[in-house]
Simulated scan of single mutants.
Amino acid sequence: MAISSSPFTGSTKPRAFHMADTCYPVVEEGVFELDVFTYTTMIRGFYKIDMIHSAFKVFDEMCYAPNSITYNTLIHRFCKNSDIEGAQRIFDRIVKVGGQSYKSDVVTYTTLIDGYSKKGEFCEALECMKEMVKQGCHSNVLIYNALIEGLCLGENVYEAMKMMTRMRLNGLEDNVTTNTGIMKGFCIVGKSEEAIMHLKKMDVVSVLSNGKDGQKIILRTTMSPGGQF
């Protein structure tokens, strides 16, 4: 008779997951009866301690259909490792099984768009955004911030400014992260004076509240030639 409780749920500490890796064969023998949430917890935990092989072993051997958290965990891990192709493969799998147990949600699309943006693949990011809207998911500030940051890192700060305008026209309010990204973009292309002008339009206290990133931006702009308030 299977025992319904699981020794894996409730902890994501490395020691616990090394124990989980040791105990997993016991699960395969039917001593413990796991549900989709326990499988997902194990996958997330193995990823956190870089036990990638164990994470995929659990995923491949799941006795239940993966849910949104399972798929989003996999996509997030691929994107974090800059493996956007791997993330896209997981997304394609979601599309293939769509309508049965899971449909892509705003978290899925946000993670993919962020991954594409960080790699400078903006056409793919925008296509992903279009598909998201088509599927009934609405854009949010996180998505626009990901696009803006990616454009700025790719030295396309003026395109990033247009994206911020587009965000505002769609009824979303830019925040400290949005504007810090714009300022960083100006600094990257050597336009410190424009970064200062942008800063003057903002609440400096809010920028400083963005932590070390905001502080670095202010120092970089004020220490540049002509960088006087």
Score class of each variant (00 low, 15 high):
residue 137 C to I: 11
residue 30 G to P: 05
residue 13 K to N: 09
residue 182 I to C: 04
residue 134 K to D: 13
residue 70 T to S: 05
residue 185 G to N: 04
residue 198 H to V: 13
residue 41 T to M: 04
residue 175 N to C: 06
residue 163 M to G: 10
residue 132 M to R: 06
residue 126 L to R: 08
residue 108 T to D: 04
residue 2 A to V: 12
residue 167 M to Y: 15
residue 175 N to I: 09
residue 97 V to K: 13
residue 179 N to M: 10
residue 117 S to V: 02
residue 4 S to M: 09
residue 159 E to A: 10
residue 94 I to Q: 00
residue 148 I to M: 06
residue 127 E to Q: 13
residue 193 E to K: 05
residue 177 T to C: 12
residue 29 E to T: 08
residue 80 K to C: 14
residue 209 S to M: 08
residue 54 S to T: 04
residue 215 Q to P: 11
residue 124 E to L: 12
residue 168 R to D: 15
residue 224 S to G: 07
residue 105 D to Q: 08
residue 154 G to M: 07
residue 22 T to L: 10
residue 3 I to M: 09
residue 70 T to V: 01
residue 143 I to H: 04
residue 219 L to E: 13
residue 188 I to E: 07
residue 187 C to Y: 01
residue 28 E to I: 08
residue 143 I to F: 03
residue 163 M to W: 07
residue 121 E to A: 07
residue 169 L to R: 14
residue 152 C to W: 10
residue 24 Y to H: 03
residue 192 S to E: 06
residue 27 V to D: 01
residue 204 V to L: 13
residue 203 D to Q: 07
residue 45 G to Y: 01
residue 144 Y to C: 09
residue 198 H to G: 10
residue 8 F to G: 00
residue 163 M to T: 14
residue 134 K to T: 13
residue 74 L to I: 03
residue 16 A to N: 04
residue 93 R to V: 09
residue 229 F to G: 10
residue 200 K to A: 11
residue 197 M to G: 12
residue 16 A to S: 03
